[in-house]
């Protein structure tokens, strides 16, 4: 595992839709690098053939009948929670050119 670079931090931030100041890039690069160094302790563990764990419930494929049910909240109420809405829809800046 190699060191994380400032360029990589900037790229990750862009992918996650975050804008970082130059100071933040410097800070995060050092901090994340130190965390990645800490994670190196896992290299010593032999995980060959070990199944990864993604959840611990012991449950698989929990089904329910596919039947329409009344919503606890009216869709209009949910839309109203958004910062901008119009005619029952979420409002965002124009996506397509005129």
């Amino acid at each position: 595992m190699t060191k994380i670079t400032k360029e990589e931090v900037k790229k990750l931030a862009a992918l996650a839709k975050l804008e970082l100041s130059n100071d933040e890039v410097v800070k995060f690069q050092a901090e994340i690098d130190s965390m990645l160094q800490h994670f190196k302790d896992l290299d010593a563990v032999n995980t060959e053939g070990v199944n990864p764990t993604s959840q611990v419930t012991g449950l698989t494929n929990v089904h329910r009948p596919d039947l329409p049910q009344p919503s606890a909240v009216e869709p209009e109420e949910l839309v109203k929670l958004a910062p901008k809405s119009k005619a029952g829809y979420l409002q965002v800046p124009r996506v397509l050119d005129q």
Binding site: L12, T47, T53
Partner: peptide, 25 residues
């Protein structure tokens, strides 16, 4: 940012999958 890094292709196996395997152990 850290989460995006450990999930990104090229690092996924080294970090995320490895962590999930050690979680099993």
């Amino acid at each position: 940012i850290l989460g995006t890094h450990v999930l990104s292709s090229g690092y996924y196996d080294a970090y995320y999958k490895k962590a999930q395997q050690v979680r099993t152990l």
